[in-house]
Design a binder for these strands. Structure first.
Lengths: 334, 334
DNA sequence: TCTCCTGTCGAAAGCGCTTTACATGTGTAA
DNA sequence: TTACACATGTAAAGCGCTTTCGACAGGAGA
């Protein structure tokens, strides 16, 4: 391995000067040129461990990925958010470290991240709160999709999303609207349900408890079960708003299986706008989350936290707007 | 930060002994217990940079992700392969480092990985060979989906995939079979096309050159264009085998737009079995790649390379079998 | 009793880099 | 000429850890 000593010897300067030249500190043009020449010739590559050890700065961001579908990085929503995050972090020369997730033991994961000396952490979890509390984070950290009152969180405007969905449905003449909820220990699930209730009330519609069904962790399996419950009702809804696209897609399937049509008999609205949404039959009307932007905002926030660790400036939360994309799964009753 | 010195002082042993105790080297039970007690009490976390510096082992694997769709980690095929890779690597306590991709400059990326001191590299690229040659890899490296004659490569049995597709089509009475090829600078694209030609020949069918169209980099846009070309032909094929699901899906859309039916008028077979495949109308018959397994095999191979760096044992390539999943996009002509 | 072996532990060097504090050389003003 | 400021370069310490090699104690064998 070629080190800074080799460069020093080859160029005729001291290692201190070499270090300065490599870090754009003040050295004469002459010295800089000579040193860079040696660097080229000897194929020198600085050793980041040594640098990290000396500077206490690793230029790595730890990524904590927690989802309980078992698909990890392949998670359609998370992967897009992380990609947005990565793109922004790249601009500032940070690399991303995906640490092996010491099964469930959050404390362990945090220890590990500390061991790695990452400069910051981004946490993106699908499951409940109680599973990851009590972690004293003495490290710059940003959360995605967690309670909005916690500082350092980036999240979609879930309530507005629900409002958009309900508004659209009401505008199309629907009154009997059901909601397939996301698991009520997840932040997104809670917020979307709240937004749904609020929007219904705002329209003077009452929220029937039997129209509120739990769809679990946003999977098709959960959506399927929920929809079956809805269809088993005496008085069926004319529209269903699901808190996630996968659940909405499963709902559509079930409706068809029961011999009903979408959207003529039952309209469906989803949440997320995953790639699949536009390809199913009928194309799904849904609330679009801007995954790229969420990731980017998280990156900006984390960068800010890293830069201002000393100043105890309380970090705000950041809400990312959502939008409705109207396709063909909603029928106009009028 | 609490260091090994603090533990030494607190426990009454020297730092050398502490280090040994922490690395399961031989120390007396008494010493080990005392040291571990101090570790607990002081919340000591070893510093991986220092350790890496001293041992020249980082326990990190560099991941090089090259795709030209601009979706990075969110790539449906790659993300699943990487997830399989990650799951296996976790078993051996390796973390994954996603380095910022110094736009195109492969040489730069490799330098960066070297700088980071990763113990090994996994490269998963969608584009052509010429874009990444001349990189002298003095580091354990594994490639996914590259020429099978290069040592250290894991790839799907693309030729057999094509054979499965053609066989299935022929069994259903098709003779006029077209192939939407993946870009012919990509390894997978080349192999699948070769397999197609071979399989056709084996069935005594001739391969019409106008039935071989380039679909580009496996995107829907490319598939769409290719299918249009096929439909513009005087003598249309009765079946189309696309080298990728996205292309197949686009093809189905185009066929429908032209007022034809799938599969009654034209049958379609894809490759990959991405999640979308089962949700479109009609559900797509396709060749399934075992992404998890590919990732896992890559991990196994890399681990082996890392363990046996000295012994110049030439690394074999590893071919992962594919299978056909029959859904409803193929029509029986009989 | 003395010697030798074994098991335990510690001193110190070294991994490759940054950074502080100081030395040297050059130019400018008095 | 002397004095001083400034620009440039260097020696050396230190970041937190591993590892070699030698010191030492205690027990076994003669």
């Amino acid at each position: 391995m070629v080190t800074i000593y080799d460069i020093a010897k080859d160029s005729g300067y001291s290692i201190a000067t070499v270090s300065k030249a490599l870090n754009n500190k003040s050295v004469s043009e002459k010295a800089r040129r000579a040193i860079l020449k040696s660097v080229e010739e000897l194929h020198y590559t600085p050793n980041s461990s040594a640098r990290t050890l000396a500077t206490n700065k690793s230029w790595m961001i730890g990524v904590v990925f927690g989802e309980n579908l078992g698909i990890g990085i392949a998670h359609p929503f998370f992967s897009q958010v992380i990609e947005g995050f990565k793109k922004h972090m790249e601009l500032y020369n940070y690399d991303l470290l995906f640490v092996s997730r010491h099964m469930g033991l959050q404390q362990e994961t945090y220890r590990h991240l500390q061991h790695r000396g990452v400069d910051g952490i981004v946490i993106i979890q699908s499951f409940g709160e109680d599973e990851m509390q009590n972690i004293e984070m003495s490290m710059p950290t940003v959360y995605i999709d967690r309670p909005s009152d916690e500082p350092g969180t980036v999240y979609s405007d879930n309530r507005s999303g629900s409002r958009l969905a309900v508004n659209h449905l009401v505008e199309n003449g629907h009154k009997k609207i059901a909601h397939i909820m996301g698991n009520q220990t997840t932040y997104a699930g809670i917020e979307r349900a709240k937004g749904f209730r609020q929007a219904m009330r705002d329209h003077g519609l009452d929220v029937r408890e039997d129209y509120l069904v739990d769809g679990g962790y946003y999977s098709q399996a959960g959506g399927r079960e929920a929809m079956i419950r809805l269809l088993s009702l005496e008085d069926k809804p004319t529209a269903v708003y699901a808190a996630g696209d996968e659940m909405a897609i499963a709902a559509i399937k079930v409706i068809k299986e029961w011999g009903l049509r979408v959207p003529e008999d039952i309209s469906v609205v989803g949440f997320d706008d995953i790639q699949l949404a536009q390809h199913i039959d009928p194309p799904l009307t849904t609330i679009r989350q801007d995954k790229e932007l969420i990731g980017q905002q998280a990156a900006i926030m984390l960068l800010d936290k890293i830069a201002n660790q000393d100043t105890k400036h309380v970090n705000k939360t950041k809400m990312v707007p959502v939008s409705i994309v109207k396709r063909q799964s909603v029928h106009n009753l009028a």
